[in-house]
């Protein structure tokens, strides 16, 4: 089975000059895990929910081994300074280069990549063009089909 055989989620793109607010709103409204940052129809980076969070919360959060110590604190208590976040655009928070999988790759290799990178989605490329996203949801759909088939095929004891 290949990625080509799955239904892909269309990707949303945003200009690299878009503000953080526009990025956050697009992510929220589409409900998608990532948006692609685009420059003259060329994908130059992606922005995920975590990238947006990183803009507002300080980096040292990664150092805190036990999140339980934050139980009684609010986001507001450790919000980054306004001046450091105000003028940021999509291009400042995106991660690049864009990592993609080919539409003719097998589904198994896509699953393995997701597992290895701890990602729930992969960008799919057909030649030079990004044509969509394969997400955990599509993979689960295929897995359900396979599980069903194995159960039906196995002889009754």
């Amino acid at each position: 089975m290949k990625i080509r055989d799955c239904v892909l989620t269309p990707v949303k793109t945003i200009s690299k000059e878009a503000t953080i607010k526009e990025v956050a709103e697009l992510l929220y409204e589409t409900g998608q895990p990532i948006v692609v940052v685009d420059e003259n129809n060329d994908p130059v980076g992606i922005i995920s929910f975590i990238d947006v969070i990183k803009v507002f919360l300080p980096n040292f959060l990664d150092l805190i081994e036990d999140p339980d110590i934050l139980k009684h604190l609010g986001v507001i208590d450790i919000l980054k300074d306004k001046k450091t976040t105000k003028d940021l655009a999509a291009k400042d928070i995106m991660s690049s280069p864009v990592r993609t999988v080919d539409i003719d790759d097998s589904l198994l290799s896509a699953i393995a990549k997701m597992k290895k990178r701890m990602q729930r989605q992969l960008l799919v490329r057909d030649g030079d063009k990004i044509i969509g996203l394969i997400t955990a949801r599509e993979i689960l759909k295929e897995l359900i089909k396979i599980i069903k088939k194995t159960i039906e095929d196995s002889p009754e004891p």
Binding site: F60, L63, I64, E65, I69, L73, I78
Partner: peptide
């Protein structure tokens, strides 16, 4: 390793 991040957190707050 454990006390420094909490120090940074407290200073930030």
């Amino acid at each position: 390793i454990i006390i420094a991040p909490i120090t940074i957190l407290v200073a930030k707050m």
